[in-house]
Structures are given as structure tokens and as C-alpha cells.
Computed example of a mutant assay.
Amino acid sequence: MKHTLGKLERLKSKKLIEKLYQDGNSVKLFPLRMMYLQTAHTSDFPAQVGVSVAKRNFKLAVDRNRIKRLMREAYRLQKEIVYDQLEDPYVFMISYLGKEEVPYQEVYLKMKILLTLFVKETKSKKNETL
């Protein structure tokens, strides 16, 4: 699998983002929260992902952009955790909840645990419906 995060893998649709926040579920691992929703999207990839950082917590755009860059990089390098387990298409929005910037190593580790939690939760929900 290529470790890229191309245009088709990014969540850009305003309609999908609204639907995600209205109907989606979430998994939290401070300082990250992942909102997710199993729904069809326009991409051939198993998931589309977006990242966000609250302006309320980080006033300067350079700080918000740096954290978003770190989160995208951590996701890009570990997305096979999710891709290997998904059969249905999903959309994600990963939000940064912290009030201070953390080092990249911590973001990387928390992202890994968050993705693993997501896989476990989706597997358990799928088993409940069967």
C-alpha cells in the first residue's frame, strides 16, 4: 500500500461533513477525537478523512495548520490499520481537542491507538448486528 493521502482520500464534501456530525459516532483518545460514519462516498478508497483544529484553542492560523499537518502525516503513515479491516466505505473527521500543541511522537502514538479503537468498535457493532 502506498503511504499517500491524495485528493480522493480527503473529506471535502460539505453535505457529507454535515451528515457526519448529525448522524456519526465518535471515538476519543485525548487529544484526538474521531467522528465516523459508514456511508457511501465518491472515492474508490475505503475511507475519506478530514482533520480539524478549533480556532477557539489555537488563535493563530500557523499553529492550527501545523497541528493539522502533523495529524494528516500520522494518519497517512498508519492508514493501513483501518484500510485492512474495512469492507464498507466510511468517512472520518479527526479533531484535535487539546489546548496545547503536543510533539509529533505523541500525535503518532495517539493516532495509532485511536485507529485501533475505531477498528475494534466497528467490529463489535458489526458483530452485534449479525
Rank of each mutant, 00 (worst) to 15 (best):
E18N: 11
N65A: 07
A74Y: 00
R64H: 05
E73R: 13
N25V: 01
K68C: 04
Y21G: 00
Q22K: 15
K110L: 06
A61K: 06
L114K: 12
I81Q: 04
F118W: 07
G6I: 02
L86R: 04
I113G: 00
K112A: 05
R64T: 01
D63W: 04
H3I: 10
D23S: 14
L8Q: 14
L114F: 10
F92Y: 12
N25E: 06
R56W: 04
F30D: 05
K12N: 10
Q38T: 04
Q85W: 00
I67L: 13
R72S: 05
N25M: 05
E80K: 07
Q78W: 03
I67E: 04
T129H: 11
K15G: 00
L11S: 03
L16V: 02
L86E: 01
K123T: 11
E101N: 13
T116V: 04
V51T: 14
G98C: 05
R66H: 09
L114I: 04
K112P: 00
T39Q: 10
K14A: 12
N127G: 03
S124C: 02
D84Q: 12
L37S: 01
V91Q: 01
Y96E: 02
K55H: 10
H41Y: 07
K112F: 08
G50W: 03
L37K: 09
K19E: 13
K68P: 01
Y36R: 12
I81F: 10
K2Y: 08
Y108L: 12
L86I: 05
L97H: 06
R33F: 04
T39Y: 02
R66M: 08
V51H: 10
A40Y: 06
K55L: 05
V102Y: 09
L8N: 15
K59W: 12
D63Y: 08
I94N: 06
K120W: 06
K59S: 10
R64L: 02
L97M: 15
K123R: 15
Y21R: 13
L32C: 10
S13M: 07
E73W: 00
E80W: 04
F58L: 05
L5K: 10
P31C: 06
G6N: 11
Q78D: 02
K7W: 09
Q22F: 11
E87L: 12
D44R: 07
Y21H: 11
D84V: 02
K112V: 01
L115G: 08
R56K: 15
V91C: 08
Y36I: 09
V119Q: 06
K14R: 15
V27T: 09
